[in-house]
Design a protein around this nucleic acid. Sequence first.
DNA 1: ACCCAGGCGGGCG
DNA 2: CGCCCGCATGGG
Length: 280
Amino acid sequence: MEKTTLTVNDFNLKYSFESGQPLSFYADFLNNELAYTAKNHIVNIKQENNKIILKSDDIIFAKKELISRFRLKDPMKTIYNEISTDSFMAESISRYKGLHITLNDPWETLVVFIISQNNNIRNIRNSVLKLIELFGTETEFKTKNFPALNDLLNAKENDFKKCSVGFRAKYLKNAVDYCTNNLDLYKLKQKDYETIVQELLQVNGVGNKIADCVALMGYGKLEAFPIDIWIKRILEKIYFKGNKTDIKILKSFAMQKWEKYAGYAQQYLYWNARNNFNSY
DNA sequence: ACCCAGGCGGGCG
DNA sequence: CGCCCGCATGGG
């Protein structure tokens, strides 16, 4: 294993990993050390204050992977300035300073978030690990890659059910077919936010929330603002006097308030709500 | 036993 | 159109 170190600012590996983003459903985080497989390579990341210790069989690849996956070039000072519009957001940011949005493979992101619907973190991870075990290709290090679209072409609905995904099995099967025959996820990379969402919504089993998650974490569209049950609850509690409020209203409120970095605002709200909801 | 989880599609009014 | 309900699985 080759090794290198680099210096980072306004980055916290633990928060970025733990906050319910795609990597959290299959990577290992033990003793403050993150380990996962990407494109047939081992990636091993450890943080000590402002220092990242990176280990890999291919250190050039791993360095690019690290910088890209954790968006280390994001202008965090600017982002914090833009989204810190009120005391609640300011507190959310200060609690989890250094939490980055991650940038993941679009297909991987789509699969993970299809599995996430009406589900909980623990079950999602359990299903994703089973999916990798069943369909992921093995590396020379005996670890497995997250299954690419091509690895799933022959998977049947019943094969997906072996991964404890229940009713979502038909959505996964449909997503494989649709992305094989009707939609090239990788061509979408050059499109804008609205186009990406509209295209993703054509996939049966993908609604507004999943489309926004994929736009944000699979395509890097930072203006996307996915609204799940926790975002809904915390927005209502903090900004709507506890009143039940339609998701469409919440969404236009958030997108106007946080604009091009709404996705970052969303991630800080989400993680703060998940961890501290009852203290507000 | 009942409720909930990073929702969505379909059917009914 | 909007509203509401079922949906698999596992844990509290």
